[in-house]
Amino acid sequence: MSEANDKRAALGEKTAELVIAGFTFVLGAIVAFDSWRLGARWVEDGPQTGYFPFYVGLIICFASIVNFVTALLAGKKGRAFVKVGQLKLVLSVLVPSAVYVGLVGWLGIYVPSILYIASFMLWLGKYPWWKALLVSVGTSVFFYSVFELWFQVPLPKGPIESLLGIA
């Protein structure tokens, strides 16, 4: 892709403002709704369970509307929220991180950490494979020793640890 393309806005700031205001509005509505279900009135011995969350939800909704309208009226349409090139960089880390976190639930923390650190170093850092291997395995072994052996804090482990008999 060309240099110029990288500097193009991937998302306008105005759009981002509007989307976030909408998002917080929905959150506020959910909070208010569920709290009303629990009882959100002020009874003789003070507020009920849902009283505070209910108003918190309402305030979020109201303030979100204000933010939404402010963003709508503001004329800064042209400004970029994030440029294509920036977004590519951010996603190049965010996506592998999300995959990594997803793998933790399945494989435990140690093996995905090795894969994650190694691939990060190989692709983004352009390190030789042996360096990547050394650092990634070293880190996992270090955390294993500190958490499991030294402080006896169990971290998630998966099938591979079971095979090795250290789960």
């Binding site: 976190v101 933790v104 923390i109 170093m121 850092g125 971290l155």
Partner: peptide, 15 residues
């Protein structure tokens, strides 16, 4: 270097 410490930080954060 960033590409070494950043993934390690994320692992620490996850832990």
């Amino acid at each position: 270097p960033f590409s070494v410490i950043a993934p390690i930080i994320i692992v620490i954060c996850a832990i």
